[in-house]
Design a protein around this nucleic acid. Structure first.
Lengths: 339, 339
DNA sequence: TTGTAAGCGTTATCAC
DNA sequence: GTGATAACGCTTACAA
């Protein structure tokens, strides 16, 4: 494995010159640089990762903490991961995936201290997120996918739920629906420590529905297909007037729809559904094809990566906090209200 | 950030003793070790990753090359990833995800040379896989999820398709089906360079069907929902006698079933379906619930990680080549044949 | 049972 | 515009 020293020797320069030729951190006589680059190509030289990290005190590695264990991780998370991985690798960074049950801050601390980790990306952000506080405290650069209650000064890429809800509800309103339900995401510790998205989803729907004179009822569900099925059954029993549903948790949404099928209900004839947390690539996976306010998860994650790397490299990036919306994509799960 | 030196000073020993206390690579007086461990805990000392990698010439990082870009990656791949990540982190290794279009061997070469990467896990293995050859050539430790035509001497975790097919076909046979189709996975370059799984799936079905006196027709499809829908339509047009389908590509299978729904066909009354490439966690995501020969992707990936790390650490592991099957799990997508 | 010291391949700070 | 050289924090012989 070729080292910098060997390149230097063959090019007839000193090792440090090789570095500068490669990084461009100081000016170099064009011919010398040319010669060096040639030898680099010949020897197939690649700087040694660990050596660079050790000497430079920085690491071209990002970690992404992701939720979900054996039980199942949502397609959305996958989309984030894919987007992040691709964006990172394009900029020469590696992405480490770290399974996070939120609890094991120690491990993250370990990673951070071990110097493996240049920065961290977090998903599933809660309004008051201990992980965020901890990492800020440790001065680990960080970007959130989602955002805390007060995200000032912290990088984030999140959705503008005001607008997402507006688009969905406007469409329901156009279709003539007056009584809708919204499938929200519950979790065991939900009440004490809700995710930002849950609170924003809820409040934005209530507000937008009110503006449109629409009655909106919340149906909470854990995010798995089975809970979604149960949520459906509960809705049919308790809220018979509902003709349209706005759904957040993606896995539960699938179960919800399957629950309707099982009961012989027809979507969209009997019930319209819009999903707001389904990426384009997932639309075809359900039947009927879901109408969605597209979640551009792939692009959002890529943006998050770029913000992060810019910060690491000191490149100014004015958009350190981004809100994305997503287009309303018409599928086959929505139809006009009929008395 | 505490260094080894500092720990040594406070514990009144030499730096190397700290290392040995931590790694157990040589015996140490219990009291000394005790004292050291205490200081380690106090200072929250964690060995520096890059320094260790540099000095030791090894890296506690594994890379997993995974297929699929923005377009969509299959739930199966996700399951593999999750299993691998968790298993790796349990053993103190980090897992780097590298998006691989098979083409960019250069990047992998770069990673390998940069020393970032202790070993590589590969998925979507082809019968003659250039990546495998290349990595073996570069002496990068490697484990396959899947296997090449001749995997002798190479670590792998794969499925025993003989047995998987047998279980599925036996069940169809019990149900009385005599004319089945199998949905196989095609790809653009399929014919020249098939994945191992595709060949084994095909040949094992043909063989097992013959034993049972069942007619089996192949329906190839790309692995995405849309192609699956088209495959369904094609099957209905050309092979009217088929009453049961054995499906490999997971995303296509979903599209295939949706195609049946759209045409008003009822599953399982009109058509039985068994999927052999769907992990347990995905069963609920389709409607009706799929009958499957379970793909224990999570566990398989974990096994692959453990094989890999054992090799890296010189721990003898007799099961460097594993074949998994998976249980037949009855869902609602299969029913007895009715004339 | 423990300590010493020579690297590992870079980066970055000096000089020249 | 270029060349030495001191870190960086650890692993691992080799001594003691």
């Amino acid at each position: 494995m070729a080292t910098r020293e060997e390149v230097a020797r063959r090019a007839g320069v000193s090792p440090s010159t090789v570095t500068y030729a490669l990084t461009g951190k100081r000016s170099i006589k064009p011919e010398t640089r040319e010669r060096i680059l040639q030898v680099v190509a010949e020897l197939n030289y690649v700087p040694h990762f660990a050596a660079g990290a050790l000497a430079g005190g920085r690491s071209k590695t990002l970690a992404m903490l992701f939720p979900g264990s054996a039980a199942g991780i949502s397609p959305v998370a996958l989309q984030y991961i894919t987007g992040a991985v691709n964006a990172a690798s394009e900029r020469g960074y590696a992405l480490i995936l770290w399974p996070g049950d939120n609890a094991d801050m120690n491990q993250i601390a370990t990673l951070a201290k071990s110097g493996l980790l240049g920065a961290v990306l977090l998903m599933e952000i809660h309004l008051r997120d201990k992980r965020v506080e901890y990492l800020l405290d440790q001065e680990v650069p960080l970007t959130m996918i989602g955002r805390t209650a007060d995200p000032s000064g912290i990088n984030y890429v999140d959705r503008d739920f005001e607008e997402v809800s507006k688009r969905a509800i406007d469409y329901f309103s156009e279709l003539g629906h007056k009584n809708i339900a919204f499938l929200s995401q519950a979790s065991e510790r939900q009440t004490k420590d809700p995710r930002g998205v849950d609170q924003r989803f809820q409040s934005s729907i209530i507000e937008n529905a009110k503006k449109r004179g629409i009655v909106a009822t919340e149906i909470p569900s854990l995010n798995d297909p089975n809970s979604g099925r149960i949520a459906y059954q509960l809705m049919r029993k308790r809220y018979k007037k509902v003709t349209a549903v706005l759904a957040l948790p993606d896995l539960a949404t699938i179960g919800f729809i399957n629950g309707a099928h099982e009961e012989g209900l027809s979507i969209p004839e009997d019930l319209s559904v819009i999903s707001v947390n389904t990426p384009k690539t997932q639309i075809n996976m359900s039947w009927p094809k879901l109408t969605t306010v597209d979640l551009p998860a792939y692009e959002m994650a890529a943006a998050a990566i770029n913000i992060t790397i810019d910060q690491l490299e000191g490149i100014p990036n004015p958009e350190k906090q981004q809100l994305w919306i997503g287009d309303l994509i018409l599928g086959d799960s929505t139809a006009p209200y009929k008395k």
